[in-house]
């Protein structure tokens, strides 16, 4: 039996959280849904907004119809589809390797966790510096003083120091796929630590008996990995894939880190924009209606992708 005194006390303990949640979580959920149906709504009157609006689904149509939306959606999906599998497979291999050694295990584990404790804008600037070409590039009169360390390494490894042998990664006049490659490298580098940590934790809880049985049968390493480790690790793998996709669809600051707020190389600003970037662009232009519609679309996409992930993992995971 719950007595009234304790009820009253419980709500007192909850009060601060409830008040803040009502203002900053519950109200925004309601308001965003409402605003998304207020066509052409721009709420901030001081910033030149107007109070008049009509009700309809035009916001959704306008957002989807924008070429920037299609570009952002394409970028976001590409980043997800490329980075999640690459980072998951790499993290799995590293975790399995870490789990199989004794000497230096702790030290290497620490090294692989390091990228987690970084500021994604700050280290993005380091990656940009590594890929950056210094000089007057992308113009008729090209003068290059430094190719950037990545180009230098490629030239060194390929043994071809020809000045023409370089790739314009992120500078003026660079190719879309070169930009995308840099983003994928950076995001994978950033995503590895969390995945390794979770997968290694999972590996360490697998019963050693399975491996002893495989040893008695002298099962080859590859079969042990695909037939024992991966199935037993499947709940953890599902977890890192799902969180990876959710994170991937919310990708934004890593692009700001590399390209700055231009969201693209100098000749094509906005080319690398993502869904989240699109929402903030609408918000900064005082178009709350469209921003809300874009946010709901993003939420819908994340929900659908997570459902698909859960559905697939339910079929494939082995508990």
């Amino acid at each position: 039996m719950v007595d009234n005194r304790q009820q009253w006390k419980a709500w007192l303990y909850l009060a601060p959280a409830i008040v803040l949640l009502l203002i900053f979580t519950v109200w925004p959920i309601i308001n965003t849904v409402v605003m998304s149906f207020m066509e052409g709504y721009s709420g901030l009157l001081k910033a030149g907004g107007q109070a008049s609006f009509s009700i309809g689904v035009n916001n959704f149509a306008r957002v989807i119809g924008q070429p920037t939306f299609q570009q952002s959606l394409k970028n976001t999906i590409l980043l997800c589809v490329l980075t999640v599998p690459i980072s998951t497979v790499l993290a799995l291999l590293i975790a399995v390797a870490l789990n199989s050694i004794k000497v230096f295990q702790k030290g290497l584990q620490t090294v692989f966790f390091l990228p987690y404790v970084t500021n994604s804008i700050a280290i993005g600037m380091v990656f940009a510096a590594m890929f950056n070409i210094i000089g007057n590039i992308g113009t008729r009169r090209e003068v290059i003083s430094s190719y950037g360390v990545i180009n230098d390494l490629i030239r060194f490894i390929s043994g071809n120091p020809n000045p023409k042998n370089y790739i314009n990664w992120i500078n003026n006049g660079s190719d879309y796929w070169a930009n995308m490659f840099v983003m994928v490298v950076y995001i994978v580098w950033n995503a590895l630590p969390f995945k390794i940590l979770v997968l290694l934790g999972g590996l360490q809880s697998i019963n050693k008996q399975y491996y002893d049985a495989a040893k008695v049968d002298s099962t080859p390493r590859w079969r042990v990995l695909t037939r024992i480790t991966v199935p037993l690790l499947s709940p953890m793998l599902a977890y890192v894939v799902i969180t990876g996709f959710i994170g991937g669809f919310k990708e934004y600051t890593s692009i700001v880190g590399i390209f700055g707020e231009n969201m693209g190389p100098a000749h094509a600003p906005g080319r690398m924009n993502t869904m989240v970037g699109l929402i903030y662009d609408s918000l900064e232009q005082n178009k709350q209606g469209e921003a809300s519609a874009a946010a709901l679309i993003l939420f819908g996409i994340i929900l659908v992708v997570t459902m698909i992930n859960l559905w697939v993992s339910k079929k494939k995971t082995h508990y």
């Binding site: 900053f24 109200w27 925004p28 959920i29 605003m35 709420g43 929402i279 918000l283 946010a295 939420f299």
Partner: peptide, 22 residues
């Protein structure tokens, strides 16, 4: 209900919170 709100991307809150804090 509280756990369910964790699924919602933060950007959805930001739009309204921006107006609220102003």
């Amino acid at each position: 209900a509280l756990l369910a709100t964790m699924m919602i991307p933060g950007e959805l809150f930001t739009i309204t919170n921006f107006s609220t804090v102003i």
